[in-house]
Design a protein around this nucleic acid. Structure first.
Lengths: 216, 216
DNA sequence: TAGATTGTTAATCGATTAACAATC
DNA sequence: TAGATTGTTAATCGATTAACAATC
C-alpha cells in the first residue's frame, strides 16, 4: 500500500489525528476505533489513512501512542523547522502572528512585509515590518519556503508573484481572490466568506424544510 | 436535476462563482467556460453545479451575469440578513470583527462575548463585550442563528453548548478541537494548523522527489 | 441556417465502507 | 488457545469528466 497516491483529505485527517494524540502521553496503546471516536470518523478510515504510509500498529492491540505521534510528525514533516514569511500586517495578519495556533516551534515566521510606509520599521511580535519591495530578496536570503498572504485582494497576485520569485513553494492565502500560480507551487486557500455562505445555505435550506413539514 | 442531493463542495464553488461574478456589472453574458476560467475549474463543473438548482442559462449564449448573481445569492441565502455572535474577543476574534471579508451586510455580528472581566464592557468595532454567561439569553433574544468561535480550545466545548442552548444552528469554529454537537447543527471548522501541516507535507514530499531525481 | 453553448445522461475516476485473513 | 485488532482487498458510494441532443 505505501507508494500509492495519497488523497489530500488523508493528509488533513493525519493532522487531526496528531492533534488528538497530543493530548495523550507517549505511553499506552490506542486502537483505530479509539482514535476514530476522538476525531469523529471511523476505524476503517483511520487504518486506511495510516496504511498509505506503512504499518504502524500491532494486530490485536492497537497503536503505540508515542510511536504513532512520531510517525505522523515525520509524515507531515513537522519534525523539522520551517521558516515562514507573512505579507500584509493588517488586523488579520498581526492577529495570526500572535495566535497560538500559528505560533508553533515547527513554523517560525521570520519576516513580515507591508506596503504601508507608516508600518514599515515597526515591530509586530518582535519582527520588524519590511517593505514589500524586499520580499524576493529576503525570502531568498533566509530560504523561506512557505508564505502567508493576508493582504487585500487587489494586491494579492503581485505579492504572490514576488514570493514565488523569492523561492516560496507553498502559500497559505487568506485574500479572497483566485491566484494564478505555476502548478508546482502548492496553494491553500482559507476563504472565510465561503464558510459563512455555506452555513447560510445550510440553515436556509433547513428552515425551508422545517416550514414545509410544519415544524418549529 | 433540481431536488437531487447537493454535494457540499458544490455549495463552496457557488460561493466562489459568486465572488468572481461580483467583479462584473450585471449587464452582459458569461459562458460556463468563461466563468470556469476565472475560478480555475472546468465548464462542465460549472454547469453541473448550477444544474442542481435549475436552468439559469441560455443555450448557445451563456449566462446573464446579473441574473446568475441573483440566483446564486438566493441559493446561498445571502439575499437576506443573518445575525451572528462571536465568542472569544482575543486577537483573532477582534481581527475577524474588523476584517473586510467578514464585515458584510449579509452577516451582521451583533454580539461579542468573552470570559475576561477586564474585557467585559469594553467595545470592539462598536459592539460591547458581554460575559459568556449571557450567551444563551442574548442569542435567544436576538434570534442569532450563526455563532463564531474564536476561544482557546479548552473552553470551546462549553461555549458551543451555550450557543446551542441559545438557538444557534450553524457554527464557524476556529478553536483547534473536535466539538461534539447534535447532528442537526451545522459545523464548519477552520483549522489553520492543519493547513500549514498540509503545506509542510507537500513541500517535504516534493523535496524528497527532487532529491531522488537529482534536481535542485 | 450555421455556430455556439446549455442541461443532462453515461462513463470514469477516486474515496469510503465493509469484510476478513493474518497476526499479536 | 481465545479474543482482539491490524492491514488489505473487494464492494459500494459519490463526485468529476466526457459526450451530445436540445436550444437559442
Amino acid at each position: 500500500m505505501p507508494g500509492f497516491k495519497v488523497p489530500e483529505i488523508t493528509i488533513q485527517r493525519l493532522s487531526i489525528y496528531l492533534r488528538a494524540l497530543k493530548k495523550f502521553t507517549d505511553e499506552g496503546i490506542l486502537s483505530s476505533q479509539g482514535l476514530a471516536r476522538l476525531v469523529g470518523t471511523t476505524a476503517a478510515q483511520v487504518r486506511k489513512d495510516l496504511a498509505y504510509f506503512g504499518e504502524f500498529g500491532i494486530p490485536g492491540q492497537g497503536y503505540n501512542i508515542g510511536k504513532l505521534k512520531q510517525e505522523i510528525r515525520h509524515i507531515l514533516a513537522v519534525d523539522k523547522e520551517w521558516r515562514l514569511a507573512l505579507v500584509g500586517a493588517g488586523k488579520l495578519g498581526t492577529a495570526l502572528l500572535a495566535y497560538p495556533g500559528f505560533k508553533r516551534e515547527e513554523f517560525k515566521i521570520i519576516a513580515v512585509f507591508d506596503n504601508d510606509p507608516k508600518k514599515i520599521g515597526k515591530k509586530v511580535e518582535g519582527i520588524t515590518i519590511e517593505p514589500v519591495e524586499k520580499i524576493t530578496d529576503i525570502l531568498l536570503e533566509y530560504e523561506v519556503k512557505i508564505g502567508i498572504l493576508t493582504t487585500p485582494a487587489d494586491v494579492a497576485q503581485s505579492v504572490v508573484d514576488k514570493m514565488i520569485e523569492g523561492g516560496v513553494r507553498g502559500i497559505l492565502n487568506f485574500a479572497p481572490v483566485h491566484l494564478k500560480i505555476p502548478e508546482k507551487i502548492k496553494l491553500k486557500n482559507v476563504d472565510l466568506s465561503m464558510e459563512l455562505e455555506a452555513l447560510s445555505y445550510f440553515l436556509a435550506k433547513e428552515a425551508k424544510h422545517r416550514k414545509a413539514k410544519g415544524r418549529t
